[in-house]
Nucleic acid binder design. Structure first.
Lengths: 159, 159
DNA sequence: GACAATTTAATTGTGTGCAATATAATTTCT
DNA sequence: AGAAATTATATTGCACACAATTAAATTGTC
């Protein structure tokens, strides 16, 4: 084994701390969300819809950092649950607008107590959680800008 | 929509900040790990093996917070890549010992520059990253202890 | 106005995560 | 010792994530 510490040590990796904390958070939410009949990513989609109202698949994806390969089947499940509707935009047939149903809007009331419930699980005070949340948000955007999704790094070549 | 801010606002959720930052980190690692032929969870398993040497599936799972349902197929893929071996313990036939092959040990050299590379992507200084890593580690363990994997919350009933 | 380029979402295939179950080996209890 | 309980891993099924591809609609260009 390695007696000496190394930059590759598992517990020194920010990436692993993030990964493990995120999985632990998901597990903590699981029994809570089970009462609403939602998975964790489904809950995040509902949060986005409750806050910002109807939006296109692309908007949701940008907000959450997910693509249509993830969102399309997830949205179909939320639709099957009767929480949302999906319809092609009349203005631009490419776009699909996601809208809360009455049941989807009503579910919000049952989700209201969740943030305080989870805050207690963390054993932290609100200011500390807000600070950590901000740091993670900054980190996310820093990483996203460092790797701009290939995007236009390689402008199309005329062949 | 909601003009007022709410405790359910997406950007106020620590859970979402964690989730999004973790996904962003995974995406940042992807092109780097592609050169090693590894996925992100496979890389974490290799880190654990490089640091702690041969260990059982259960030890790996406890370290990484994963169960056999995740680790067994993942380990089979690492084995197919020729990086590890999996063999039943002679002492206890239930246990499966995971051991690095020579190729698996040699891969470590190629992984050595990764931490510095990623540190630059974050745009942060080492002390800040170490602080964040510690906070996340604490959060993980706090959450894990708050939900002790059911464990022995319900001691077996004599029927 | 036609046609190429772009945009948007859906589809396909691979690799996780995890609950539930199965299987086999070990330990405990009597 | 033998049955029951426990432990360790594997298997199965479902739900993400995401790369790559497809399909359809729109925009841009000439």
């Amino acid at each position: 084994m390695n007696a000496k510490s190394s930059l590759l040590d598992l517990d020194r990796q920010l990436c692993f701390a993030l990964y493990a904390a995120s999985l632990a958070m998901t597990k903590a939410y699981k029994p809570i969300l089970a009462e609403l009949g939602l998975t964790y990513p489904q809950y995040l989609v509902m949060l986005a819809l409750w806050q910002h109202g109807s939006q296109r698949v692309g908007e949701l994806g940008e907000r959450l950092g997910l693509d249509s390969g993830t969102l399309t089947p997830l949205a179909k499940r939320l639709q099957a649950l009767g929480l949302i509707e999906r319809e092609r935009s009349a203005v631009d047939e490419r776009q699909v607008e996601i809208t809360l149903t009455a049941a989807g809007q009503q579910l919000r009331a049952r989700a209201e107590p969740i943030p305080l419930c989870v805050m207690q699980l963390t054993g932290c005070q609100l200011p500390q959680l807000e600070s950590l949340t901000r740091e993670l948000k900054d980190l996310r955007h820093q990483l996203a800008s460092a790797y701009p999704a290939e995007a236009n790094l390689f402008p199309p070549l005329k062949t």
